[in-house]
Design a protein around this nucleic acid. Structure first.
Lengths: 333, 333
DNA sequence: ACGGCATTTTGTAGCGCTACAATTTTTGCA
DNA sequence: TGCAAAAATTGTAGCGCTACAAAATGCCGT
């Protein structure tokens, strides 16, 4: 059993043990390089011997900075945030910043709640990667970057997001380039889907090809399945399907399989998001990579700049997606 | 632009605005029911008007409790933690506890780092849902529950985890029950896999059936693919495959498809984890649900009990998994 | 060896909140 | 109506840390 009784050691304990003043220990914590070697070693040792850990709460309170960035996501199951996070951390961790994650999964306007929680923790800045249902951030304001959606960006916040219009036309152009001329689209219901649809639409119109869109309620595999069934039954000549995301593409697979057709021989399928699903050897799904890692890097840089100078003009930036070629699309037969 | 200049309002500002003492506001924050209605409304209004948010840092420092539980996971991409988390939150959120997540993804012994970060935040308790590479928690000690692995449980910590042995034999028994007698196993390399393998092995031995195990380096789809290729090529009579997890089952699908065989007509496949993959309409994979949500519920309860009484005897508890029947297993032909 | 300067170290005063005992107000009942 | 008990409210003293100015020390040339 550990010595659960003994009080957690404080900075003062370290100072006493090392025979220096508390200020010196504080200085050590902030920048070990700025104190003499003799003291540095003494403090180092005292910290180690005592098993001392600085209290984040006290540091925050005293310095009014937390060296941490809050990231609000909608649902842990939407894995795109992992790339975003990795991108952010690649910039931030070297500078000593931490990223605190809050998901807004459970219900209606939990996004506000998640944001509030992060603000209560005094995060120095905020990345909003979830679609808000109502205006938020009333009251306190911290540097904010919106990532991944475009509506309802708070005043003064930056926007860095994926260029879904571009991605939509990229997907469509890829299929057109393979010779397809009967290309259906399975469209989701969220903001990103609308842009992807617009991109698809403009590319097809530019090529003088008929636009066929299967609308759905949501963005799930079931939605994709339903839309694909509609598409295949009402437009039997379809040779290619562009799904608004990889999950919906999976639904399309199911619909195609149920009709005894095969991918890509009978029908080419392209998804969106380049999710782990798409990368799977079994599924091997051609997809659009929306470069969320780049969004993360840019968001982090922007935040750092805005922490330095809060008066910066709000910026709007789109990140170019990229096509990832795999086995589910092929030239039309 | 929001009033970025104005200082964040404090509890004192609220007190002044509401014409009461700071203590009263503090009391209100802790339990609004304990103050008179008149004051309650005044404080309520002041908080609203000022856009006041309590400073978590100050609360923590003053009360030495954070009402938060730390959860250390290995990688956000391993979605099993989502169920764990949901289970924990179902118990904790009503009691006003928050769960703070830290992943240990980036590198070697980042688990210690993740844990340290959580401890620096003064979490009241810790759930360790990642396999540690070395002993940790040296120094400070908080109530700890280990979830999901069984080795290296810190002294004094509770263990609540999935009964992977049971799940392994459950999977094997299911296949045996369908009449299969040539059942191969794709075994992963982590701790859970070892137990699943042991369960498989004992079930097959009890039935007097040959044990055939494809060993792998890791637990990825590629590993599953490789092991399945070996299995199919060296044991051509195989009619059923039990994969140590759903991802590896996907690899098995790829290997089966590459050999012109079909699931479940030629070969039945059962996975493990009941991941979103398995639930997919397209894949429709029979799997073992390890009930991580129940693990979460139990872990949370245990932690609460241990926060009340740190001297509790360490507990060891296994959660019974359950078979989820889907379309990839059928009676042997 | 000694001023003058740069570097290192220290004391003091909070940061925003809660605990707890002390005080004031309200309530119940003889 | 008066008084004890209960309920509501308040004052005071930190929690562990950092900022900042002040003090101590080290280092240089002459």
């Amino acid at each position: 059993m550990k010595n659960a009784q003994t009080r957690r050691p404080t900075l003062y304990d370290v100072a006493t043990q090392a025979g220096v003043s508390p200020s010196l220990v504080s200085l050590f914590l902030k920048d070990p390089g700025r104190i003499s070697e003799k003291r540095r070693e003494a403090v180092q040792k005292a910290i180690h011997d005592l098993g001392y850990r600085p209290s984040r709460a006290a540091t925050t309170l005293a310095s009014n900075r937390t060296k941490s960035i809050g990231l609000v996501i909608d649902d842990y199951r939407n894995l795109w945030f992992v790339d975003l996070l990795r991108g952010m951390e690649s910039v931030l961790s070297d500078l000593g910043y931490h990223v605190m994650l809050a998901d807004s999964r459970p219900g209606a306007n939990r996004i506000k709640e998640a944001t509030d929680g992060l603000l209560a923790m005094h995060v120095d800045a905020l990345v909003l990667a979830a679609e808000p249902s109502e205006p938020m951030l009333a009251g306190t304001w911290v540097p904010t970057v919106v990532a991944g959606w475009r509506k309802g960006v708070p005043t003064g916040a930056d926007l860095i997001t994926n260029d879904d219009d571009r991605g939509g036309s990229m997907a469509a152009d890829h299929l057109l380039g393979l010779g397809h001329s009967r290309i259906g689209h399975l469209s989701g219901s969220d903001g990103a889907s609308a842009h992807r649809r617009a991109g698809y639409q403009s590319a097809l119109e530019a090529a003088g090809v008929e636009v066929v869109i299967g609308e759905t309620e949501g963005t799930s595999e079931e939605d994709g399945y339903g839309a694909a069934c509609w598409l295949l039954d009402h437009h039997p000549g379809t040779t290619a399907i562009f799904a608004a995301n990889d999950t919906m593409a999976l639904g399309a697979f199911a619909a195609i399989k149920a009709r005894g057709l095969s991918v890509p021989n009978d029908i080419s399928v392209i998804g969106y998001d380049n999710s782990p699903l798409a990368k799977s050897r079994f599924l091997d799904l051609t997809s659009i990579d929306n470069r969320s890692d780049v969004v993360g890097v840019d968001a982090a840089r922007r935040l750092l700049a805005r922490i330095d100078d809060p008066a910066l003009e709000p910026e709007r930036k789109l990140i170019e997606p990229r096509l990832v070629l795999r086995g589910t699309t092929s030239a039309v037969h």
